[in-house]
């Protein structure tokens, strides 16, 4: 049997993900997180008269909740159910930093937590910064024209 023939056999045998169900759940849970963010934002705006600070506080609150739920091992349970719904919002990023920090603690503060905290989120930061840099140059050139 060639590799190609085997790949076809595997493809026929594999179980498929239920894409529709996954999308609906991701939409609903991800949406709920965003609604919570908006509610926090509006709430903070009522307390302090500064829109930028209110937005920052809303983000910080979501991050804090996500890290707390990660530490209590509740976040991964929600994520198993919601998939991309918990991955995409800012809570996903907080979870991606907190999870390795907890995991690598036995290996020490420097080589454990320090070296591994950005293990999952590091690439997002690197390429986020890089695309910001490219976009900045393009923006500069467009303004010159």
């Amino acid at each position: 049997m060639t590799n190609k023939e085997y790949a076809r056999l595997v493809e026929k045998t594999n179980k498929k993900s239920n894409v529709l169900k996954d999308c609906v759940l991701a939409f609903l849970v991800g949406g709920l997180i965003c609604v919570l963010g908006q509610a926090l934002n509006d709430g903070y705006k009522m307390c302090i008269d500064n829109e930028l600070s209110a937005k920052t506080l809303a983000s910080i609150t979501l991050i804090a909740i996500s890290i707390l739920l990660t530490g209590l091992n509740i976040y991964p349970k929600i994520a198993k159910f919601a998939g991309a719904g918990t991955l995409v919002p800012i809570t996903g990023f907080a979870n991606a930093c907190a999870a390795p920090a907890i995991e690598f603690k036995p290996e020490g503060y420097v080589l454990g937590i320090g070296a591994n905290i950005f293990k999952i989120s590091g690439p997002v930061i690197v390429y986020g910064l890089f695309s910001g840099f490219v976009y900045g140059i393009l923006f500069y050139i467009m303004n010159l024209l």
Binding site: S17, T70, N73, P76, K80, N95, A99
Partner: peptide, 13 residues
């Protein structure tokens, strides 16, 4: 794979 507390979904296979 990933750290245990990282929220990810397993594929059915």
């Amino acid at each position: 794979r990933f750290p245990l507390n990282y929220g990810s979904k397993r594929t059915p296979n």
